[in-house]
Design a protein around this nucleic acid. Structure first.
Lengths: 346, 346
DNA sequence: CGGCCGTTTGTTAGCGATAACAATGCACCG
DNA sequence: CGGTGCATTGTTATCGCTAACAAACGGCCG
């Protein structure tokens, strides 16, 4: 049997995985017929198909992906470039993307410690080298958007969470509306004005949330306090909270994310300012833990998973039609009322 | 110029990306010489190399990965199979893996909503079909380990966070030691015994932490209260906390993770049991927010990133030597003392 | 019963790279 | 001045698959 096997010589049988020709020989057909069965072409007699399938099973044959790719020019692979996937937002989007993609694509990741021009360009380059069929950039920072500008159009590319200024198809949440909702809620409770702990200015989401807050105050004719910017971390929220706690005129704070709100709550607690009796706090994101902060955090829910799924859909559309049919509507954030905000004391 | 280009005919120039033959023609050498330059073989005259590089730049040529793979049988791709990468632990390990791998490999992910037998097998199968060079399974659940047993040895496979019972090379943290350290710490503070909020029994880490706690109590001759098992979520910690708060004999609690500890803190706060005055709480993981809980959480730090990096190293070793040189030492967790635990009141 | 047509199968030629081997050129030696 | 050997380059075969075309087969019609 071994000697009849192939030009590879008898000894190679065990070493090399079987190829299509081996299946063909065993089934007594030509390799092309095997290929037809594998690609479910019509015009293969059922009996033949069965023989081939049996041979495939017997040899545990698996088609060689590289050979296939070489001729079909399809890799069934997408690339995702993201800022630090340890963070809740990026991690959730990645998860959403992967769930939505898995039935049709492999997803390859590139998680960058910083989204600078160089890093993004390199990552795109890597992926193009790998011949991905499309790329999703989770690009929350202005620097990333800038980098995206300079990218040659080698492969369909979609951005997510990049504000509305991106020079390419994108999906995003309506940060401005979410921030406005939070601010409006606090004003409606009776607060004279609302202070704001912002995210880093280099992040688009941060800017947009700040804008939503600012516009709402302006419309309401309320005082507009200076923005205190953190870096998204609980620590920065804590430090800012320490300052804010000293100022008795502060009765309401809108934090650009839940982690900073956590730090804020801690700082207020430490300084003896009660939440929500003395000061109200509202966050943004609705991370799973927010409901278990002390007190439970009123916050703006953002559906990261949905965002990821939409990004994927947009990318797939772009790959197929090869014309971006405009970007879908922004995902609408929702205010989740818990107990960290209340009416100010009279 | 176009007519001299290639057998593809003049019109194809703009459509197809350039191939090695195009570069060769432009540089006036054979395609093999181009290949030599690309693979930095010795024995290419510097002048020739320059000509080739210039041609490559001029055409913006990129080698075709599939063609390369077909002949070299290398894909430079690794697969990572993980349970829900939204969670802090898996996300951090994934990040560690990717950071360590990126200079040499692409990393493809498969994030499963459940690590059941079928799911793991399918994921491995997908990756084998994609011809990855190795797979890392972030396999914290017993069901995953069971599934790993049945896997044919088609590709190097390494598990991480899978306890010490895995039938294959693995890396893990020393959960038992970490839990023992936390428990010991509470006992040393003077508590009679320590209650335990465990993770789901289907998770190896949960079991090991419970074991470490249990052994320590036994060694100390302390009472061994019944384990209350949660599901890692803050919500489950909260619910268990509500029960525990009613029992005045409870003065110290060791939680199997920080999220449940957060829920516990909230429940105790709500029920008027002060932490750490009335009851001490220690967590596990040291998530970035733990320092900003109220009170700041004393917990056991686990370096997920390092774990990921080690897993990668182990996998690469396995790929190269193709014999697993035994698994590396478990990563040692460290107790981070903050203020959620104190001496019991007299 | 020959010819036409549709179904089923086989044969050949690529896809774009690397590997093995052959050929060239030049320096150096006896 | 021919032979030897190394550095450099070119030629050919091959990786495992799909696409395009060719051939064989059978049924049906006139």
């Amino acid at each position: 049997m071994a000697s009849a096997q192939s030009r590879r010589g008898p000894a190679a049988d065990a070493l090399r995985p079987p190829v299509m020709a081996d299946v063909a020989r065993l089934a007594g057909v030509s390799h092309q017929t095997v290929s037809r069965v594998l690609n479910s072409h019509p015009n293969v007699r059922p009996a033949t198909r069965e023989k081939v399938l049996a041979a495939i099973r017997e040899l545990s044959y698996r088609p060689n992906a590289a050979a296939r790719t070489l001729v079909t020019r399809r890799t069934h692979t997408l690339g995702v470039i993201s800022f630090d996937t340890t963070l809740y937002g990026p991690a959730s989007m990645l998860y959403g993307i992967e769930q939505a993609a898995r039935h049709a694509y492999f997803v390859s990741i590139s998680s960058l410690p910083a989204l600078d021009h160089r890093g993004v360009l390199d990552a795109v380059d890597r992926f193009v080298g790998q011949a991905v069929e499309g790329i999703i950039v989770i690009a929350p920072q202005t620097s990333a958007v800038a980098a995206l500008n300079g990218i040659p159009d080698l492969v369909p590319l979609v951005a997510v969470g990049c504000g509305t200024e991106a020079p390419l198809p994108f999906v995003s949440v309506d940060n401005t509306a979410g921030a406005a909702r939070a601010t409006r809620y606090l004003l409606d409770l009776g607060h004279r004005t609302v202070h704001h702990v912002g995210g880093p200015g280099s992040w688009l989401d941060a800017r947009e949330r700040t804008r939503g807050w600012s516009q709402t105050l302006q419309q309401a004719g309320a005082d507009q306090p200076e923005v205190l910017a953190g870096d998204w971390s609980a620590r920065s929220g804590y430090e800012i909270g320490l300052q804010l706690a000293r100022r008795p005129e502060v009765t309401a704070v809108f934090c650009a994310n839940d982690h900073m709100a956590l730090g804020l709550l801690r700082a207020f607690g430490e300084q003896g300012r009660r939440v929500p009796e003395d000061v109200s706090v509202v966050g943004f994101d609705d991370i799973p833990e927010a409901a278990f902060f002390r007190p439970p955090l009123t916050t703006v829910r953002q559906d990261f998973g949905e965002l990821g799924r939409r990004a994927l859909r947009l990318l797939v559309d772009t790959i197929c039609d090869h014309h971006s049919a405009g970007s879908p509507l922004p995902v609408d954030p929702e205010l989740v009322v818990r107990s960290s905000a209340a009416r100010p004391r009279a």
